[in-house]
């Protein structure tokens, strides 16, 4: 029995190891290939260490332009999705009318819709309705239709734990609805707001399917990468991948550190309070 159990645990460990190797090995391979002097992205044969491909990527103007467009689209999506998602969340969590279930299903549906269908229908609709052909603005609209849902879900999760009497108390003390929103509701929503901004930006930045159909001749980073991958791949694309991964990790790390720091500060504050209570 003991033996069986140990064997079982060993198998579990080994499997976990394999699983994570499966997750990471391709990425490491891709990163490592960025440093090979070879003209195609590979590790074998190894032709010596170089940073040449980073320089090549750095000097690619199209890359910078795509990065710029990605930022532009990302920021626009953040603004639009937060605006729409917050309205949806307020509607869903405060208005207890009939038809709520149907409305919820409608608002959640976009995240279950294949991204290319959203992209296609956005392109068709704007072409038909306003003779607008694809450009970055359409990508913003297409992406926002489902990113707003993510934002809404984040806000709803936070609003669910909101004590609504706080708003009533503020109203009762003479605040106008607008003042209530800025002084009571929004401060409470701040953490959710940060998460929603981060998520919306990342989602937009990564999006390929929806964007491909609605962006027309403009180019975001994923569109640029896809274009590079279609014709004549060089390790420069590995260098771009490497830089993106580094940037992502850095952002994630600083986000996590900021969170830890906040938590530690609030914990030390509560300890201080405990101390005061004990000494008084």
């Amino acid at each position: 029995m003991m033996l069986m159990e140990r064997l079982g645990r060993f198998c579990a460990r080994a499997y976990l190891g394999l699983f994570f190797a499966y997750l990471f090995a391709p990425l490491f391979y891709m990163i490592a290939a960025a440093f090979n002097r070879s003209s195609v992205p590979t590790l074998s044969p190894w032709r010596g260490f170089t940073l040449h491909w980073f320089a090549v990527a750095w000097q690619d103007d199209r890359l910078w332009q795509a990065l710029g467009t990605s930022f532009l689209v990302g920021c626009a999506v953040v603004v639009l999705s937060i605006t729409l998602g917050l309205a949806g969340a307020l509607l869903m969590s405060r208005l207890k009318a009939r038809g709520r279930g149907l409305l919820y299903a409608l608002l959640v549906a976009p995240v279950l819709m294949p991204g290319i269908v959203i992209g296609l229908s956005t392109a068709i609709f704007w072409d038909r309705a306003a003779q607008v052909s694809g450009f970055w603005g359409l990508a913003v609209l297409g992406q926002s239709s489902f990113i707003s849902t993510y934002c809404m879900l984040i806000f709803m999760a936070r609003l669910q734990r909101f004590d609504e009497t706080l708003e009533e108390a503020a109203l009762d003390l003479g605040a106008s609805p607008r003042q209530v929103f800025w002084t009571v509701t929004l401060p409470y929503l701040r953490p959710a707001l940060f998460s929603a901004v981060a998520l919306a930006f990342i989602q937009s930045f990564e999006n390929y399917n929806t964007t491909l159909f609605s962006i027309g001749i403009d180019e975001t980073l994923p569109i640029y990468i896809a274009g590079k991958l279609r014709v004549g791949v060089t390790p420069a694309i590995n260098a771009v991948a490497c830089a993106m991964i580094a940037a992502t990790l850095l952002a994630g790390l600083s986000f996590e550190l900021a969170r830890l720091y906040r938590r530690k500060r609030s914990r030390s504050r509560s300890r201080r309070i405990g101390h005061q209570a004990a000494s008084s």
């Binding site: 004590d163 009497t165 009533e168 109203l171 009762d172 003479g174 409470y188």
Partner: peptide, 18 residues
């Protein structure tokens, strides 16, 4: 409510925690 000359103490007090 915000224009009435009344003030309400809520059952749970509703003090602003932040």
């Amino acid at each position: 409510p915000n224009r009435r000359p009344t003030a309400l103490i809520f059952q749970n007090l509703a003090l602003f925690p932040l």
